[in-house]
Design a binder for these strands. Structure first.
Lengths: 384, 384
DNA sequence: TGAAACTCGGAAAGCGCTTACCAAGCAACT
DNA sequence: AGTTGCTTGGTAAGCGCTTTCCGAGTTTCA
């Protein structure tokens, strides 16, 4: 078909492309349609649209008029193929196991944190004309690696929320395409963005130990092997040791970053007759929510008998009773910075000088004192 | 360059593509690399990979071996251009105005609902090998329409969370590409997916009126012109009228679907000396959170003096004090269904018979009684 | 008035894939 | 052995863009 015209490109079958109501489905107009309407070649159209070699005024106007009339928008696949830029960044989130959420929500509440980070990315991405291609992967899934490589081929860069790939896979991936990790550690070919866990946790620990005078603490960890959780735990342990304060820790104090995980851990400890420390420091706010619940169920007063703290300062933290003391990270900034970082690595060629590869970027954190640590109820709501 | 070979396609400069550690940055291997390694033509490679015309056993093996060795994954842009399928669905979320969140979170908490819907989409999308391209748009932005059309050209279909486009734009868009709306109304060329607002609200209203015997209610609406909010309000009004119960409504009872909006509205009413109805029915859970806060601040007992209800039954609803009575929609199902719907419209050609165009799909809702309506505290936590 | 220096559109190659279409190889038939 | 019919791999066109390269037209200056 359509061998009627000798040109290379297609003749774009959408004859009636002009705005109005044609058939129930119109093909989107192509650059050929625009060229035809404007009475010019597709090269001229492209040049006007991409601001190359500034074309004559009249040419420009004819093109612009035709574009407006047809509502032409270039097809991204064709453009991507040609300029080797998709204007898309892939984002990989770790999907929690469904089995986890039994006593808490059926619909999981555990993705708030990554979602907020993504929001931060998205906003700055837009300023650069980029979009985010989001994919969640199940850790157990054997094909996880392949999925991520597939995503990589749909994107110009990748942001990984969690440690999912093996070091070898990560290495191979990151030399094909810019990769930024969140809450991991940078490698020679990747950059990493994270909140200042250490500083935040130290501030929190000192507050509990010196301002409140608590002498027994515990650390309710996040899921296994999470670098964030480890760093936080280490900082806490260090402060505790320095002050000669007892810190309970270990397998029975392991949560999952989720409310259910925190609840389960405390439930077991209580059932086992373990007496609670004066303060429970949770690896994140979600865990603290679970802890708060179980404590309330057992009639244990917070912060009267046991103080509880979170980490992240999610919006929900101030809506709890008691309001949750936490360490704030600017979650959106985390995302924004992660995006800016991949972005800077993108056109920037392979191993160009300005590259962010191998860099570890820390964002500031801040202690937010509320009621659950034993501070007096702050004035009003939402106080920081 | 590389005019050395007479073939049409490129010679793919990535000479050293083989796995190991080459330069710090390798070009991802192309199908030409695979063909070379396998000693076959790119056509054969493609056929093996796409299961066409089942090739000979030996050919298949050689290709597969080469693919594995190189870690080849086809470039999506090239593939998309060729098969006219990007395997991407665009999702448009309405970004709330920043100015809104003053007394509540700086980091907005208002996106939980759309984020959970997106999660639902994402999971089923993956089963079809699709990814979601997510973009939030600011309602005030004059260019909003253009942004959406641009997104459309990066996708095979679109899911719109909110009414953002003018009817004309929506019409033009939806005849170029499959469009599904959430919480809107279907048009001749789009499908719509929504929760059964009417049924849910009627159940809630009857519970408040007949089970609890409340005789004055109010409806704290969502943002202006939201079809969901309107439908819910109408159902409530209808039930109230039928039972001869007073329903307060109107401009001063308008919220914004956000905690801050609900709080502000109630704050103003109290300041104006308006006495509260026996029960405040909020358009969604977020609004109810704001209402709960302001009521608590003013020492008004919930549900003792005033009952409060939400809608959506977000996970956070059961973590409030008192636990929030709400109407549950399976949020993830909303997303999953929306995706399945666009998906069914995608390759399905223009106006093919099986098309979902014009259809309005309603998902069931269920009343969840907790404390805030005046029911006795349910057993334990997380009870439904 | 003729040559040199520019300006500006068009033709065409190429981005990495898929997929007709073709031709070679081979088995099986008359 | 000569043809038919099938299988299978290669050739090349084409997807919708961008961009290099050319050549025709216009200006500038001797």
């Amino acid at each position: 078909m359509n061998s009627d015209l000798g040109t290379t490109g297609a003749g774009s079958a959408a004859g009636h492309a002009s705005a109005g109501q044609g058939s129930p489905t119109d093909q989107p107009p192509t650059i050929y349609d625009v060229a035809r309407v404007a009475g010019l070649s597709i090269a001229s159209v492209s040049r006007v649209l991409n601001g190359q070699r500034n074309p004559r005024q009249e040419t420009r106007e004819r093109v612009l008029r035709a574009v407006a009339e047809l509502g032409f928008v270039p097809d991204s696949a064709a453009r991507a193929l040609s300029v080797r830029l998709k204007e898309v960044v892939g984002v990989v989130v770790r999907r929690p196991r469904w089995t986890e959420s039994t006593m808490f929500a059926d619909e999981d509440e555990n993705l708030q944190f990554p979602d907020m980070i993504n929001r931060g990315m998205e906003i700055v991405a837009q300023r650069h004309g980029f979009d985010l291609l989001i994919r969640s992967v199940d850790l157990d899934e054997p094909e996880a690696g392949r999925h991520i490589f597939a995503l990589a081929r749909k994107s110009d860069g990748l942001i990984l929320h969690d440690r999912i790939l093996s070091p070898e896979e990560l290495d191979r991936l990151s030399r094909q395409i810019p990769v930024v990790t969140l809450a991991g550690e940078p490698t020679a070919t990747t950059a990493n963005v994270h909140g200042d866990n250490e500083g935040g946790m130290r501030a929190l620990a000192r507050h509990l130990i010196f301002d409140h005078g608590y002498r027994t603490l515990s650390y309710l960890a996040g899921h296994d092997g999470s670098p964030d959780s480890i760093t936080r735990g280490r900082a806490l342990a260090d402060e505790a040791a320095g002050a000669g304060v007892t810190l309970l820790t270990g397998e029975e104090w392991r949560g999952s970053y989720q409310a259910a995980g925190g609840a389960r851990a405390i439930e077991r400890l209580i059932a086992a007759g373990v007496s609670m420390p004066r303060a429970i420091v949770c690896a994140n706010d979600q865990s603290a929510i679970g802890v708060l619940h179980v404590l309330a169920q057992h009639g244990i007063a917070v912060p009267g008998e046991v103080a509880v703290t979170g980490f992240d300062d999610m919006p929900v933290a101030r809506h709890l009773r008691p309001q949750l003391t936490s360490v704030r990270q600017s979650i959106q900034d985390l995302g924004a910075t992660a995006f800016e970082t991949v972005y800077s690595m993108i056109g920037r060629g392979p191993d160009a000088d300005g590259s962010a590869r191998g860099r570890d970027i820390a964002l500031p954190t801040r202690l937010i004192r509320r009621e659950s640590c034993g501070c007096s109820p702050a004035s009003g709501l939402g106080t920081q």
